[in-house]
Nucleic acid binder design. Structure first.
Lengths: 255, 255
DNA sequence: CAAATGTAGCGTACGCCGTGCGCAGTCATC
DNA sequence: GATGACTGCGCACGGCGTACGCTACATTTG
């Protein structure tokens, strides 16, 4: 709760940045510059390639100089995360056309965001705190849901559910991308490399349903699959709302 | 496509294990033993603590001995993944009571699985191939959906959507657990450490909707939140099925 | 103007990691 | 008993995050 609380320190850095010093030599770098460069590095070469040494090299400073700005690599990742989490990807998304179109936009925007910065899904793993951009994002969405006949808690659940779906779906997509990339094959080549083996397995008769699936079961784009699931979820929300419209007196009951 | 194909080699190891040698000294270990110990280590101390050195130490062998059994750490992770991905967690789940109860069970089973082995969500990141257990899992589910008025492709989309949701939801849950654990606080302490800071932010008036949310918006258990989203998704599926029942002629149209 | 003081930059070093290489010991086969 | 494939594994290399403490410098203070 006091200043020496590590959580509080993290938040301080996220929301207010470094306190600028009054004495001593001028800093060569800025926090923002470091974060931006780190994001660029992670975008182009992957999170594994983002090391403090490489980052320092790209910024033309000594490795340990970075630690004047950032207390640890973990904290740097938190800063990167929030820097990229803002509502920028929602700019074109509004709730003017209703909650459904709005949430659909949020879903698609989120997907694009994750596809642009695949490392997001790895970094999040140790994310401890909320930054200004994440909060702004939430603000925008919750405002869009303001007039729905749901309790605040339910609205939050809806947002969490949507985010869960988006995150999980994109994760699978990136996973398959990465698997293909790592083996130096395209998605199709990779599949073709697996296929004969799997057919061999299916021929054992131990997996009759799998063996009987139609040829095009695994065809189709990731986007198609994403949209299918998103529609299911939105349909579910719509039904929940319809139920509320019928018996509005239960609007305050959890569910 | 031939034997020197690395994908094929991975699959070979997954499905058939090591070829047992005819000459030379008996191996001290088995593949299964290594995988099981590795899973135990990852379960109890986290994936970061799973190093080849530590694993070897726990198995009472030299570090490099492990490489007689497993070509690389990545391959070991693949083996761990499939070992744990089987339908074991579905044993109590059947589709006898209908698709909805079945899928609900799959969802809850998946959640339990991920909570028991939190490292699953980190490992998956480089997963390139399908193992026997994963396939058996899919077989079980697809068999349960056999009679639904959906195309195979749509059924697969349903399964993928469900898995996406489960994965994403559990990821958030584990994320928060881990954040709390790393700072050495309970979930509540962690929240309380953040709270005063956030209230400070809200008081600036820049986030009116967030500031106006009711006190209990963020209360509630993770399970409650999980169930809420799962229900939305299943409702969505149900509606899709209802539509098909009305106009069964469209059953083969993608959607 | 000069001294004191806090800060920036960063070289060195430590203890981790995955794993390529090649040697020594073991044992089924001929 | 000789052969040769196979097991176990020590050593070493090149990476990683980062603690420590030195030097250089800009500002404040006297």
């Amino acid at each position: 709760m006091n200043a020496e609380n590590p959580v509080r320190k993290s938040l301080q850095l996220l929301w207010y940045g470094l306190p600028d010093p009054k004495k001593g030599p001028k800093p060569t770098l800025t926090l923002e510059q470091i974060v931006r460069t780190a994001i660029g590095l992670a975008d182009s070469e992957g999170l594994d390639a983002l090391s403090m040494r490489k980052l320092a090299q790209r910024l033309d400073v000594g490795t340990m100089s970075l630690y004047r700005y950032v207390p640890s690599k973990t904290e740097l990742l938190n800063l990167m995360l929030d820097a990229v989490s803002g509502p920028t990807h929602l700019r074109r998304t509004t709730f003017d056309a209703g909650w459904r179109v709005g949430l659909e936009g949020v879903g698609h925007g989120g997907r694009q965001q994750y596809l642009a910065h695949p490392w997001l899904l790895q970094v999040n793993w140790t994310r401890p705190v909320l930054g200004p951009n994440s909060v702004a994002d939430m603000e925008l969405i919750m405002t869009g849901l303001k007039d729905l006949p749901l309790s605040d808690r339910e609205k939050m659940h809806v947002v969490v559910a949507l985010d869960s779906y988006v995150t999980g779906a994109v994760r699978q997509e990136i996973l398959s991308q990465r698997a293909a990339a790592e083996s130096g094959m395209t998605d199709e080549e990779f599949w073709e490399a697996q296929a004969p083996f799997l057919y061999e397995i299916f021929d054992t008769g131990r997996y009759p349903t799998m063996a009987s699936l139609s040829e095009d079961t695994f065809a189709g784009t990731w986007e198609e699959s994403f949209d299918f699931g998103l529609r299911l979820l939105l349909d579910g929300i719509e039904q929940q709302l319809a139920r509320r419209a019928e018996s509005p007196d239960t609007a305050d009951t959890p569910f």
